[in-house]
Write a protein that binds this DNA or RNA. Structure first.
Length: 592
RNA sequence: GCGCCCUUAGCUCAACCGGAUAGAGCACCCGCCUUCUAAGCGGGCGGUUGCAGGUUCGAGUCCUGCAGGGCGCGCCA
């Protein structure tokens, strides 16, 4: 099961080798000039440079070798030495039938499956998720699905932030606010046993915590004494003092509900719901081991690992392993997490799908992990992404200037989706439950496709009106195309029309099959670059190619052989489109 | 100050180890619904790829410098 690009590539590479040119230069790509050819190879130009020959002569020699290949309907040399290849209709039809019969719709698999962990989402305990978590969740989920589909053994891990200084800050703030909780925590810590009556903790809600945190963080910045207390509490929590621990467990519980709601709404799920606290037990032995290996250095009251390397353009800060208060820092838990994952899963690759701004942090942690022998060079990879900005070009904020909660963003988008559906006169004859289901799918498609159509590294502008539009390059457009095919196939089935062998006659059919054939290239590119936008682009191109086909090639009214061929093409397109969208984390309703 | 990223059509973004005429969507203009969902299709308009050099037969892509923007730079995560 090989796509045409590779099949032709092998043929051209063989021809290159036969004339004494480096075979790898025979690489074939889709044509930049679809009016002239289906595929092209530019290798003659590069080979000319290396061999000191005329590129057109090399191209001509290669063309001679290729002549007579029944898969090719045309071999032409153009410009300075481009080799233009036109595929034979019969070969194209064979490939189409192959894809149609393939459960993987023409997709290949990795040669050697790897064990891969995708670390994404990154919710924090005691804080609602906000727009900043949207990209991590969307991109990470897509990469997880893509890697799994290509054959790797993949684990998605949410990696909670639940064990650092912010917990100390919050515990302190809640104790200040609620005397009954202060008493409970103090008693627990003093007695050394878990508090018997936990009912005062019921008063703690996520919105309280959300309100306290910014205040506490601000106070901590300005007030040294307040900060020191929070650090001591953090230390106390990390040594599991029963009072602090009981309150912290309540934080986790109230957060869980909101997290599950938001992730569920976005169609995101994890194999592991591990947090920083899950590696807490590894930290003390890990620190001892790092010490024994001679990696730890005392510095300004803290214990650090230096990670500078020869050839660095600047001095990276060290990894702070133990703070001057004796507590673990986030780099410490990240390192312990690497160790934990090593022991639990022995991954070949760990992909950290986290904001680009943390690039330095991960570089430092990775270097420390390599030094400590917890991982091997190249097995840890940070996949950074840009921010989601407002129409003013600055990171997205609410009208009041605050951070928008993820749940509110999802609700806004759903509400817009309902509006659009109603405007279009949809949902009038629909049960409310189905209407809601469709609105939810349209909203998720709008959000995810808007995000994933851009390369992850760049920031993008959030524009709800544009994203939810049913026209143009949007998620809802893609759903519309898929639903249109479903409707068509239902109608065909009702008429008793079957599917049959694909035959190609119209240009729109050619283009559609060439697009179907390009699926594996898109997958490979997205996989290699960890860049789902290649898949988003394929989904869009496929939809467009189908739409042209749909407009140019009537199906139900065609003569039987053509009709059954076109119905197969339509069904295959739908399957590949739904699969591609699924890899982006987008699901398609039955109708809309 | 040091380092990383970005700058492509009016707007939002693509461009496959350097290759032909830099592509899409939106917006704007013109066509196409008695026939499968027109949320669609076809056509048109629109570019000195931030600026200046360099390497190359060939540069949006590689190198150098400059301008503008974003981000990061040990006891938050």
């Amino acid at each position: 099961m090989t796509d045409l690009k590779r099949v032709l590539g092998e043929a051209v590479e063989t021809a290159f080798a036969a004339i004494g040119a480096p075979p790898e230069l025979g690489r074939v790509t889709p044509s930049d000039r679809p009016d002239l050819a289906d595929f092209q190879s530019n290798g003659a130009l590069a080979a000319a440079k290396r061999l000191g020959k005329n590129p057109r002569e090399i191209a001509a020699a290669v063309a001679d070798r290729l002549a007579g290949d029944p898969r090719l309907a045309g071999i032409e040399i153009a410009g300075p030495g481009f080799i233009n290849l036109k595929i034979a209709d019969a070969t194209l039809a064979d490939r189409a039938n192959e894809i149609a019969a393939d459960l993987r719709l023409g997709a290949g698999s990795v040669a050697v499956p790897r064990r891969v962990i995708v670390d994404y989402g990154g919710p924090n305990v005691a804080k609602p998720m906000h727009v900043g978590h949207l990209r991590a969740s969307i991109i990470g989920e897509s990469i997880k699905r893509l890697y799994r589909f290509r054959g790797d053994e993949v684990i998605g891990d949410a990696h909670f932030g639940d064990w650092g200084y912010q917990m100390g800050l919050l515990i302190g703030a809640v104790m200040d606010e609620v005397p009954a909780i202060r008493a409970l925590v103090d008693d627990g810590n003093a007695s050394g046993a878990a508090p018997a009556d936990l009912s005062p903790l019921d008063a703690v809600t996520l919105s309280d915590l959300d309100r306290f945190y910014p205040e506490a963080a601000a106070t901590g910045k300005a007030d040294t004494e307040y900060r020191d207390r929070a650090r001591k509490i953090t230390m106390g929590l990390q040594s599991k003092q029963p009072g602090y621990y009981a309150l912290w467990e309540r934080f986790r519980a109230v957060t869980q509900v909101a997290l599950e709601r938001d992730f569920h709404a976005l169609g995101i799920d994890f194999d592991w719901w591990k947090g920083e606290s899950d590696v807490e037990h590894l930290i003390a032995p890990m620190v001892a081991e790092l010490d024994a290996k001679g990696l730890l250095v005392d510095d300004q009251g803290a214990r650090i690992i230096r990670v500078v390397q020869q050839g660095d353009k600047r001095e990276l800060p060290p990894l702070l392993v133990v703070s001057s208060e004796g507590s673990a820092m986030y780099g410490t838990t990240d390192l312990a997490t690497i160790l934990d994952r090593q022991q639990a899963f022995d991954p070949h690759l760990v992909i950290y799908c986290v904001d680009q701004r943390q690039a330095d942090h991960f570089e430092i942690v990775f270097r420390a992990a390599y030094q400590a022998g917890y991982s091997q060079d190249g097995q840890l990879e940070h996949i950074g992404f840009g921010t989601m900005n407002g129409t003013d070009g600055k990171p997205f904020k609410t009208r009041e200037g605050g951070v928008l909660k993820l749940n509110d963003l999802i609700e806004m988008t759903r509400s817009k989706a309902r509006e659009r559906l109603t405007e279009a006169g949809l949902g009038e004859n629909m049960a409310p439950a189905e209407f809601e289901d469709i609105a939810g799918k349209v909203a998720v498609a709008a959000l995810k496709f808007a995000d994933l159509q851009n390369f992850r590294g760049t920031s993008y502008v959030f524009d709800l009106d544009r994203f939810t539009s049913f026209e143009g390059k949007t998620g809802p457009y893609l759903l519309y195309q898929a639903v249109r095919v479903k409707s068509l196939l239902r109608r065909a089935a009702a008429e008793g029309f079957g599917q049959g062998v694909i035959i190609i006659s119209e240009p729109a059919e050619r283009d559609l099959v060439l697009t179907l054939d390009a699926f594996d290239s898109a997958l490979t590119e997205a996989y290699d670059k960890k860049a789902p936008h290649a898949l988003a682009e394929h989904a869009y191109r496929l939809s467009q190619a189908f739409s042209k086909f749909y407009a140019a090639c009537p199906m139900l009214s065609a003569e039987p052989a053509i009709r059954s061929s076109r119905l197969t093409l339509a069904a295959t397109t739908l399957s590949q489109l739904e699969l591609t969208l699924d890899l982006l984390g987008i699901s398609v309703p039955e109708r809309m």
